[in-house]
């Protein structure tokens, strides 16, 4: 049984949900082939819709995390005080345990010619000997 090819577009429109015009509705009532074709296409549309729905009927595999940082003022105060105390302890410990500053070696260094400059013995005295 072959449906009326000239109604192809109208059959598609009605299959996807449009209301048929009075004229086309009358044709569908009179033509068993077109009515059967419409039924077949409407079933196919339902199947297609089902695939799309199933495709979109997805859920995230895990619950979306909503653990956002909570900035309560009292928490900020507690954390701030703890940090300040820790810094103070570090500072005091560092001060107490600091190493004494050793005398730099450079201060004990002497020029090799330093003795020549020191007038330990007078030139005149040497001649007098």
């Amino acid at each position: 049984m072959t449906y009326c090819r000239q109604h192809d577009d109208l059959l598609d429109d009605v299959a996807v949900g449009s209301a048929p015009s009075a004229e086309f509705a009358a044709h569908l009532n009179a033509c068993a082939a077109c009515a059967a074709e419409l039924e077949r296409r409407a079933a196919l549309v339902a199947r297609i819709d089902g695939v799309a729905r199933a495709w979109m009927d997805a859920s995230p595999r895990t619950e979306i995390s909503v653990r956002f940082e909570r900035s309560h003022p009292w928490r900020i105060a507690v954390v701030g005080a703890a940090l300040a105390a820790a810094l103070a302890v570090l500072f005091v410990t560092g001060y107490v345990l600091r190493k004494p500053v050793s005398t730099p070696t450079i201060l004990s260094w002497q020029s090799p010619t330093a003795d020549l400059l020191r007038p330990s013995v007078s030139v005149l005295d040497t001649h007098s000997l």
């Binding site: 598609d12 429109d13 449009s18 296409r41 549309v45 297609i48």
Partner: peptide
């Protein structure tokens, strides 16, 4: 409507 018709 157009999408479903095209899919069909």
């Amino acid at each position: 409507h157009l999408a479903r018709k095209q899919l069909l």
